[in-house]
Structure formats: C-alpha cells, structure tokens
Simulated scan of single mutants.
Amino acid sequence: MVENTFRAFVVREEADGFVGRLETRSLGDLPDNDVLVKVCYSSLNYKDALSVSGNRGITRNYPHTPGIDATGSVVSSKSSLFRPGDRVVVTGYDLGMNTAGGFADYIRVPVDWLVRLPQGLTHREAMILGTAGLTAALSVFKLSQFVAPEDGPIAVSGASGGVGSLATAILAQLGYTVLAVSGKQAEEAFLLSLGADAIIPRVDLESASPRPLLKGCFAGAVDTVGGTVLSNLIKLTKAEGAVTCCGNVASADLDITVYPFILRGISLLGIDSQNCPLQTRELLWNRLATIWKPAGLLEICREISLSELNDAIVGMLAGRLRGRTIVHIAD
C-alpha cells in the first residue's frame, strides 16, 4: 500500500539563510512524471551539499528536496518498460537539482531516467557507487581506450573522495598501477587498501609551473579536482597518454598551452555522467555489478539516516569526508 504522505529532507530559504530539515510531504507535491519509486537508499554528493547551501547554479527554486542519486523499487508506472516491484537506480539528469530528489521516501521521475538495477548489486551497493561510481566507471572506460595497464602508472587526483576512491579501486582491479594523489596524509592506509600502489602528496601538484611541459611520469590520469592539479597532470603525462576531467572543486580554470596536445599527443577526455546516454549507463552499471565491482566496496562507505544529513553536509563542504556517504531511507 502506498502512503499518501511521506518523509522528505526539504531545504527552504529563510531569513538567516538556507535551512534543511525533515518534513512531511504528500505524493501530490511530486512532479507529474512517469514512474513512482519507493526509495531504499540515496547518497550524499557534492552537488547535494551545494543545493542545500542555496547554490542557484545547482537549484533554481526553493523549497527543494536534494539527492541526485536514488535506488529503490517501482510502485507505479505509466510506461510498459517498468512494472511495480522492479528494482531501479537513478543517477544524474535533473534528479535532486530542480526535480525533487532522493532524500525522501518517494521520487517520481521520467521513465528514460531509470536503469534496471543489475543482478549482483544490492540497493546499498548501488548507492555506495551512485553518481560517483558511474563517473569513475565512465572515466576508466574512456581512459582504457587510450591507455593499457602495461603502458605505465595512472595518477588519480582527489583519491580519497567519492569519485577518486572508486576510480582507484576499479583501476587497481583491472591491473593498472595507481598513484593516488591526496592532501590527506591520514588517509594513506585507506588509499593503499583500495589498491593504490603509492601516494603522491597533493602539494606536489598544486604549484603552477611556467613550463609548458614537465617530465613525463604518467601514462594517464583521472582528475577529479580541476585547476592547477589538472594542468600539472596534463604536463606530466607521457606521449600518447590521456587524462580524464570530471570536477572543478579546486577551480574551473585551466591554465595551459597547446603543447602537451600537439607535441605529445595527449588526449583530454571530458566526463559528463549527468547526461550520459542510457546505453552507456546500462553497460557501465552491468560492469560495476560484475567484473568492475570493487572488492572492498562495503568498506569505503559511511551510512547515515535522513536526520543526520545536515552534519554530513557540513563535513563534506569542509573536506572532512572520505569515500562515500550513503543515506538509508527505508528497507
């Protein structure tokens, strides 16, 4: 039986700023989309933290329920593609940005946002992966088309974060030598447990160099932070190598010449997991459920409840979180 009312974490703009709290909502408050899903788990991502903070580049209108990831079971569907009881996962698109998101008991979304949850993944595991896992998988997928494990080491920036930690684990599982770039010395044991072969202090890549090229050290890189770190990773990549780019937490600016591209043939690969085509999503989710599934997946997450979201968001914005934070909504 579907309840007409449900719990949701709602962010409202108040006199002293943006405030998120648990509220009771009705199904009529949800958008009139194709498929109603009972949410089991969501996860906390940087975009969610920005939405809760009132970032209009992420969320235009408030009150709003964030949560760019969700997994659960179909309750009702206007489409013949899905039936009640089907296990599904939703990541990206507009979920949790301007469409009510996964920090609630229910979501209602367009049918073409849904991916059938593959055999081999529980709801909990799907959200440990979530957008971060899809982004990491897309990064590895594109990188692997240019660089093989025998070509040399791969650097991963922001390695203790959600995307970085999962990229490290997937690359290591596929036989790549992984050099984890991190500014958190206390996380060295964690990164080594994911499969990293060595740690590079982030400070080594944070100083801008006037040189257009640096000595080639990496066959490729997965960058999650942008800015000077990305610029240096490109300059340090060997001939015919490739660097993926999926984040801008350090900076959205890229100060670099064309020389790495025209003298070494470096490929800079943009990663857009938010609008990734459905066929590619299904391919990557199936790989994440099988041959790419990190061996220590359950060990890289922290599980919280909806009532603990505010504290976790503060920690994320302060850079204190590692790995993945998942939100248990319902069994």
Rank of each mutant, 00 (worst) to 15 (best):
T177M: 10
V178S: 05
V178I: 01
V178T: 02
L179G: 02
A180C: 06
A180I: 03
A180D: 12
A180W: 07
V181I: 08
V181L: 10
S182T: 01
S182W: 00
S182K: 00
S182E: 01
S182F: 00
S182A: 03
G183R: 04
G183S: 08
G183C: 09
G183W: 05
G183H: 05
G183D: 04
K184G: 07
K184R: 05
K184N: 10
K184I: 02
Q185D: 12
Q185R: 06
Q185H: 13
A186H: 14
E187S: 08
E187Q: 06
E187G: 00
E187I: 00
E187P: 02
E187M: 02
E188I: 05
E188K: 09
E188A: 12
A189D: 09
A189E: 13
F190Q: 01
F190R: 00
L191W: 04
L191Q: 03
L192D: 05
L192K: 13
S193W: 04
S193A: 11
S193L: 04
L194D: 09
L194W: 00
L194A: 10
L194R: 03
G195N: 04
G195K: 05
G195M: 01
G195P: 10
A196L: 10
A196M: 11
A196G: 03
A196T: 00
D197Q: 15
D197A: 14
D197Y: 12
D197C: 13
D197F: 11
A198F: 03
A198K: 03
I199T: 09
I199N: 08
I199F: 05
I199S: 09
I200C: 07
I200W: 09
P201W: 06
P201D: 03
P201S: 05
P201G: 09
R202C: 08
R202G: 06
V203C: 14
V203K: 14
V203H: 13
D204V: 04
D204F: 09
D204N: 10
L205T: 05
L205C: 00
L205Y: 07
E206C: 08
E206G: 12
E206N: 12
A208R: 09
A208F: 08
A208C: 07
A208H: 10
S209L: 10
S209Q: 13
S209M: 07
P210D: 02
P210G: 02
P210A: 02
P210H: 04
P210R: 08
P210T: 00
R211M: 15
R211D: 15
R211P: 14
R211Q: 14
R211Y: 12
P212S: 10
P212E: 06
P212Y: 04
L213P: 09
L213Q: 05
L213F: 07
L214F: 14
L214E: 11
L214C: 12
L214W: 04
L214A: 13
K215P: 14
K215S: 15
G216C: 07
G216H: 08
G216E: 07
C217W: 14
C217Y: 15
C217I: 14
C217E: 15
C217L: 15
C217R: 15
F218G: 04
